[in-house]
C-alpha cells in the first residue's frame, strides 16, 4: 500500500519513510537540474537567500519538455541523480528534506541525509508522459535563461515514487536486488 507524502516534508514525516516504501507525493515541490544546482550552491556559498525556502523542501531533478496544447507542463520524468551529488549536501544542510530522481547517490550525499534527516525518492525514469499528469501547476521562479533547466515551482498530486534511500541510509538498490536474487536461489 502506498504511503501519502505531503509537502512541506517535515523531519517527522521523513523518519516514518522506509527504504522500499511506495509513496504518492502531493504539494509544492521545486525542479532543479545540474545548472540550477550550481547556481543555488553559489548563492549558498555567498550566504545569499535562495529563490525558494529550502526548509523542509523537496527538489525534483527534472528538465521537463515544453507544454503542448492545453498541457500544464510537458513530459516530466526524473533525470539521473548522481550529477547532483556535488551539490545536494549543501542544500540538505540548508534544510532540504527530500530529493526525487533516479539512480545511485554518493556516500557524501547519504552521509548528509543521515546527519540532517533527508530522504531520496526514485521516480520512474522514462515515464515522463505519465508523471506529467500528476503536475497540476507549474511556474518558473528563477533562471529562465536555462530553458528546460530553469527553476520551477510545481504543484503535484499523487506523484508516484519509491523511497530508495531513507534517513537511516538503507538503500533499495542494494536490498531489493539482494532479496530478489535470494528469492530465486
Amino acid at each position: 500500500m502506498e504511503k501519502r507524502v505531503t509537502t512541506p516534508l517535515t523531519l517527522e514525516q521523513v523518519k516514518d519513510l522506509k527504504s522500499g516504501d511506495s509513496v504518492l507525493i502531493s504539494g509544492v515541490i521545486y525542479t532543479a537540474r545540474d545548472a540550477a544546482h550550481k547556481r543555488l550552491c553559489e548563492l549558498a556559498a555567498q550566504g545569499k537567500p535562495l529563490p525558494f525556502d529550502p526548509t523542509d523542501s523537496v527538489v525534483y531533478f527534472v528538465g521537463p519538455a515544453p507544454a503542448k496544447g492545453d498541457q500544464v507542463i510537458g513530459s516530466a520524468g526524473p533525470t539521473t541523480s548522481y550529477r547532483m551529488d556535488a551539490y545536494s549536501p549543501t542544500l540538505i544542510a540548508l534544510g532540504q528534506r527530500g530529493m526525487i530522481g533516479k539512480g545511485k547517490r554518493s556516500p557524501e550525499v547519504v552521509a548528509a541525509m543521515k546527519e540532517h534527516g533527508a530522504v531520496y525518492f526514485g521516480a520512474i525514469g522514462g515515464a515522463g508522459a505519465l508523471l506529467s499528469r500528476c503536475i497540476k501547476k507549474a511556474e518558473i521562479i528563477a533562471y529562465e535563461d536555462l530553458g528546460a533547466e530553469a527553476l520551477r515551482r510545481l504543484e503535484v498530486e499523487d506523484l508516484p515514487a519509491f523511497v530508495i534511500i531513507d534517513c537511516e541510509g538503507n538503500n533499495l538498490y542494494e536490498t531489493g536486488r539482494k532479496e530478489y536474487l535470494e528469492s530465486i536461489k
Binding site: V62, S75, G128, A129, L131, F162
Partner: peptide
C-alpha cells in the same frame, strides 16, 4: 515491485502514443 514498474512503463508509452506527447522528457 519490478512488475509494478513495468506496468507503469507500459501505461506511459500508451499515454505518449495516445496523446502524441514525448514518451520521455529527454527527447
Amino acid at each position: 515491485l519490478a512488475k509494478n514498474i513495468l506496468g507503469i512503463i507500459k501505461e506511459n508509452y500508451e499515454i505518449a502514443e495516445d496523446k502524441y506527447v514525448p514518451i520521455c522528457q529527454d527527447t
